[in-house]
């Protein structure tokens, strides 16, 4: 602009002269925005734009705009919107048999019931947006000793069905009495719809509420037919994505490699189906599959069952 200014100044002078001779002609000022500058002469101080004027005004009052100034000096750090993905080339991968062999070595001498295989599935995913959560029944359930209490009249059809389906406690008044005495001998509690009023009157909420055992319609634990829900509850497992990772127990330590394979397959397929069922705009992919156990480090799985040159057979890993 500075180089253009003298030229324009000259131009305006020419124009000024021309206006003298032809007063009826159109003013050139209206043609150019810079003509105003030009009209002030070449030696006039440069005109300030509105923005720079504001800035000058602001800089005279540093207290007021302190925050803004700090931001300018320190570059604002960009926040990450997706979960960080690491270079997969550093990843050492194991076949299922290898991983199980190591895990069984790490878990030697532990109680077979207390040590469990765990699986972690890492996603490529955004930090916001919906999370994957669902429940499934593994082909070989991990936790089978869940004690379930069903509240329904003890002589009803529901009671018989519930006992057949594997409920450990069925009844109404005797359960209320036991709970009030502090004898809570169950891990889950279901309630038949017709018994709901009776249960609410019995004042169980004070005891069961803090333990999150109180049946409620909202949680889906007040049901018409307890036996049907029982089947899902026993051996069912829930999973939920946390920080881009889904974790779940997939096996007991005593499982054979074939059983583990079936469980892992079922789990991963279930999660993949969930990923596909998310809305179109959300794109999540499976990034990593890691198998670990209660007392062992995590082993990234390669997806193969065994290697060709492996010396170890599934049979070796099947002993209790």
């Amino acid at each position: 602009m500075s180089t253009a200014r003298p030229c324009l100044a000259q131009l305006s002078r020419i124009c000024l002269y021309s206006t003298r001779s032809t007063p009826a002609s159109i003013s050139t000022r209206s043609l150019s925005t810079t003509a105003a500058v030009a009209a002030r002469g070449a030696n006039a101080p440069p005109m300030e734009s509105k923005a720079s004027k504001l800035l000058k005004k602001a800089s005279t009052n540093p207290q007021k705009n302190k925050k803004k100034g700090a931001e300018v000096s320190k570059k604002k750090k960009k926040t990450r919107t997706a979960y960080i993905q690491y270079d997969q080339r550093d990843l050492e991968q194991f076949t299922l048999l290898e991983a199980m062999r190591y895990i069984r070595a790490f878990e030697v001498g532990q109680k077979p019931t207390s040590a469990k295989y765990e699986m972690a599935l890492k996603f490529k995913s955004q930090k916001n947006g919906p999370v994957v959560r669902n429940r499934l029944r593994l082909p070989h359930p991990v936790k089978t000793d869940l004690r379930i209490c069903v509240i329904c009249p003890p002589d009803s059809k529901y009671a018989k069905d519930a006992i057949a389906a594997g409920a450990s406690l069925v009844g109404e008044d005797d359960i209320f009495e036991a709970v009030k005495d502090g004898r809570i001998e169950f891990d889950r509690c279901l309630c038949q719809t017709d018994s709901l009023d009776k249960m609410n009157k019995a004042g169980m909420g004070r005891v069961l509420g803090p333990r999150q055992l109180m049946p409620s319609t909202k949680l889906g634990t007040v049901v018409k037919d307890p036996a049907a829900v029982l089947k899902d509850l026993i051996g069912g497992a829930e999973y939920r994505e946390k920080l881009g990772v889904v974790r779940m127990a997939v096996g007991q330590l005593g499982f054979t490699p074939e059983e583990m394979q079936r469980n892992i397959k079922a789990f991963i397929e279930h999660v993949k189906r969930d990923l596909n069922h998310l809305s179109d705009r959300i794109n999540k992919e499976l990034a990593e599959v890691v198998l670990s156990s209660t007392n062992s480090p995590g082993f990234p799985l390669s997806g193969q069952f065994t290697k060709v040159d492996s010396t170890i057979t599934p049979r070796d890993l099947s002993t209790s």
Binding site: P112, T113, F255, T256, R315, S320
Partner: peptide, 11 residues
């Protein structure tokens, strides 16, 4: 070697 099974697991 004997196979451990889920049905008759050793507790």
């Amino acid at each position: 070697p004997e196979i451990s099974s889920t049905t008759t697991k050793q507790i």
